[in-house]
């Protein structure tokens, strides 16, 4: 892999620190994503991986560090929000898919997907409707467009959520354990959609427990341990030759779980 230079990066985070009260959850994390990168973030629970992902779009405000999207940089000092407008602008470039889907329950699948383009991008409604219909068809939900979330299975809801993120045409999509809340038989349909997105060359950062996805789909794997990056690199190298004992233990443990 060629080294990353600052100009390549669509999204970068520099030295992110985050504490909740006295507990420091993130102890200085630096990570960058270029176009078409699919980065899987692994880690034991409590390693700070979800918190880090949420720092990238300022759902959590880091205590210090900086995040840059398309070269526009937001610097954090003392965990305070500088410019709310700047954060809103930056979020428009980042899609987010949540563990609990977080669809708006009072809107249909179609309305969920149209909402961002219409409200945030001020797209005309007919145009947004066409876009939303096309995206829902792409995630295999052409026949569920007018259903409310309560009528959809978890896997279907998560696919709507992915379509909702895609509708904003984001530069990077953040996935926060997208399959962790799903029944085992529904995991596959969501992973399939994510795989297709990766194959299309979408830039993705995925916090996940799905080892097969991390290994086969991602271009880079990051292993977090106790708020720091313990290991980082291409999946083949990492999975076959773990450098740290803690990552080796992590892999062997998940292998046992699968078997």
């Amino acid at each position: 892999m060629p080294p990353k230079t600052a100009t390549d990066l669509v999204l970068s985070a520099q030295d992110i620190h985050k504490s909740f009260g006295a507990q420091e959850v993130l102890k200085g994390i630096t990570l960058g994503a270029r176009n078409h990168d699919v980065i899987s973030i692994l880690g034991t629970s409590g390693s700070g991986k979800s918190t880090f992902l949420r720092c990238l779009n300022c759902l959590e405000i880091p205590n210090s560090g900086s995040v840059a999207v398309h070269g526009e940089e937001i610097v954090f000092r003392n965990g305070r929000i500088g410019d709310q407008r700047q954060i809103e602008r930056m979020r428009r470039h980042l899609g987010m898919v949540f563990q609990q889907f977080n669809l708006w329950t009072h809107r249909t699948a179609l309305e969920n997907v149209m909402e961002g383009p219409v409200q945030v991008k001020r797209m005309a409604k007919p145009e947004a409707r066409d876009l939303a219909e096309a995206l829902l068809a792409r995630v295999g939900l052409a026949d569920r467009m007018h259903h409310y979330p309560a009528m959809l299975s978890g896997g279907q809801q998560q696919r709507v959520a992915i379509a909702r993120a895609l509708a904003m045409e984001p530069d990077v999509i953040l996935f926060d354990e997208p399959t962790s809340a799903l029944d085992p038989e529904l995991v596959g349909e969501v992973l399939k959609v994510m795989q297709d997105l990766a194959a299309e060359g979408r830039t993705m950062i995925v916090v996940t427990h799905e080892m097969a996805f991390a290994r086969d789909v991602s271009t880079e794997v990051v292993f977090l341990n106790e708020g720091r990056i313990a290991e980082q690199g291409p999946p083949d190298k990492l999975f076959d030759h773990p450098e740290t004992e803690v990552f080796a233990r992590f892999i062997s443990k998940t292998r046992r779980d699968i078997a």
């Binding site: 709310q84 809103e88 428009r92 949540f98 669809l103 708006w104 329950t105 009072h106 409200q119 993120a165």
Partner: peptide, 29 residues
């Protein structure tokens, strides 16, 4: 549900939009 508010913020809505499009419609229900 806080998750629905987060989803609205994550998509780039302003605070006023989050209130008008998600928080209040839900709260009134």
């Amino acid at each position: 549900p806080p998750g629905e508010i987060e989803a609205a913020r994550a998509i780039g809505m302003t605070r006023a939009q989050v209130l008008a499009r998600v928080t209040f419609p839900h709260a009134y229900r």
